[in-house]
């Protein structure tokens, strides 16, 4: 069950100055929305969502944020990395007409989802939002798929609003059978207020320690579902029960931190 494997990095793709995608040749058998725990021995271990997973390869997209990711960014193709997983829940693969809403470097799991949805002929619209054009990632990949792709940036010369703004506009014109979103929690929180009548799933993030459902670091108040086991993909009926959603999360010590 603790599926730890140690394997070399086979691809490194620079997405933006501070965002890279790492590829590994391995049949991970993961589903869209699931995550792995990545170990840099002697430095630490962190969860990362899968940006793509085929029968031969899997990918994770990482933003350089702290010491851990800075060290990862110094690694080269051929360097060994140890991982365990895949862990957690995955997105419901819906038929019909669906909308995927991504924010910043949290968008890549929706690319993996798009590929799986297309396999059953689902009609897909993607809204990919970022702060700036430079931070907008995966556009070229989405554009290669048979789907309706829209990108939007909040700031800069071509700034035309947030992913939430764009979603509001689109929902006035078009109805969707199912919606999916992955992004910063305040984006998801804003979306939840405009999706009162729609069915959706959100990909949430919390500090995780054991990732196998024992330590209690990622239980969500008040119902106590464990984001590493029952999440990270949560359906609307669960999200609506979370009193901490959009308000606070917990750090490594378990202390509450306001968003």
């Amino acid at each position: 069950m603790d599926k730890r494997i140690t394997l070399p990095i086979t691809k490194i793709i620079t997405e933006a100055t501070d965002i890279k995608t790492f590829g590994f040749e391995y049949d991970l058998k993961a589903k869209p929305g699931q995550f792995i725990m990545l170990t840099d021995f002697g430095k630490g271990e962190k969860p990362f969502s899968l940006a793509d997973c085929t029968k031969t390869e899997f990918f994770i997209t990482i933003k350089q944020i702290g010491d851990f990711t800075t060290r990862l960014f110094q690694k080269d193709v051929g360097d060994l990395i140890s991982i365990r997983g895949p862990y957690g829940s995955s997105f419901f693969i819906s038929q019909g007409n669906v909308l995927l809403i991504g924010g910043g470097f949290a968008t890549p799991p929706l690319y993996f989802l798009s590929k799986e949805l297309l396999k059953i002929g689902t009609k897909i619209t993607v809204i990919n939002g970022a702060k700036t054009n430079q931070q907008l990632i995966f556009s070229d990949r989405f554009e290669q798929l048979e789907l309706n792709y829209m990108s939007t940036t909040q700031f800069g010369a071509h700034g035309n609003g947030t992913a939430v703004d764009r979603t509001k506009k689109l929902l006035k014109k078009e109805q969707f059978d199912y919606l999916y979103a992955s992004g910063p929690e305040m984006m998801l929180n804003a979306l939840s207020t405009i999706l009162k009548d729609d069915e959706y799933e959100f990909l949430l993030e919390r500090y995780m320690k054991c990732a196998v459902g024992i330590c209690g670091s990622c239980t969500l108040d008040p119902i106590g579902i464990r984001l590493c086991m029952e999440g990270p993909v949560l359906p609307k009926r669960i999200v609506e029960q979370l009193t901490e959603f959009g308000k606070y999360h917990r750090d490594a010590s378990g202390m509450r931190i306001k968003f």
Partner: peptide, 30 residues
């Protein structure tokens, strides 16, 4: 409050788990 050890804090071995969380906790007040 204590953040505990960095990971991995847990690994499976035959018929058991090894763990070293490092007493992470939010402190007595919280």
């Amino acid at each position: 409050p204590r953040k505990g050890h960095e990971g991995p804090v847990i690994t499976e071995v035959q018929n058991g788990l090894l763990n070293s969380m490092g007493l992470c906790n939010p402190g007595i007040n919280d």
